Simulated assay, not measured.
Amino acid sequence: MKRIRMAALASLVALAAGAGISAAQDTGPRESSPKVTAAPKFTSTGVSGTPESVPPGEDRSAAAHCPAGTVLTGGGGGFENNAQDVTVVNSVPDIDWWIVTGSNHGSVPTDLVAWAVCITP
């Protein structure tokens, strides 16, 4: 057991010595690190459109519009207040608007709302 410990210790000393010699001899020129440029900074804004009442048995659309000087990057929509018997049938961008269409299969009117995600470049 003592021989194994001594052999391990000798190996460590040899590795350490070799690393020291290698580091002392490494005086050549270094390559410069590549420059890292920061990503552009954007400000994100969430916009909710005006809720659109969808009567029972009908389909309606609601829209959310990005403010001037911003760019639409996404959006969505849905029915408010955990409405039941409703379906979002379409949710699409249109230049700087997000438009959502919903269908009310229930027996009471319910509000559909669209939202847009806009950034300021």
Results as ranks from 00 to 15, higher is better:
82 N>C: 07
75 G>M: 14
75 G>N: 03
32 S>I: 07
69 G>A: 15
34 P>A: 01
25 Q>F: 15
65 H>M: 09
83 A>M: 08
50 T>P: 11
56 P>M: 04
62 A>G: 09
64 A>L: 11
16 A>F: 04
78 G>N: 06
65 H>S: 13
38 A>T: 13
42 F>S: 06
82 N>I: 00
51 P>Y: 13
46 G>F: 13
30 R>C: 09
44 S>K: 02
82 N>E: 10
49 G>Y: 12
25 Q>P: 02
83 A>C: 11
45 T>K: 05
21 I>C: 00
76 G>T: 08
84 Q>R: 12
28 G>R: 01
86 V>R: 10
75 G>S: 12
76 G>E: 14
60 R>S: 09
14 A>H: 02
51 P>Q: 14
51 P>L: 15
71 V>G: 07
58 E>C: 04
56 P>V: 11
37 T>W: 00
63 A>G: 11
24 A>M: 12
8 A>I: 01
18 G>S: 11
47 V>D: 13
21 I>T: 09
64 A>R: 09
52 E>P: 04
10 A>C: 03
82 N>K: 12
53 S>Y: 05
21 I>D: 10
76 G>R: 06
10 A>E: 05
75 G>L: 05
24 A>I: 02
26 D>V: 00
43 T>R: 11
31 E>V: 01
29 P>W: 12
27 T>A: 07
53 S>G: 14
50 T>W: 11
36 V>N: 01
61 S>G: 14
42 F>K: 04
26 D>C: 01
56 P>H: 11
23 A>L: 14
53 S>E: 15
49 G>N: 11
49 G>W: 11
23 A>G: 04
39 A>N: 11
79 F>M: 02
76 G>S: 08
72 L>V: 09
30 R>P: 10
69 G>T: 07
53 S>A: 13
52 E>C: 05
16 A>D: 12
30 R>L: 15
45 T>H: 14
32 S>N: 08
44 S>P: 03
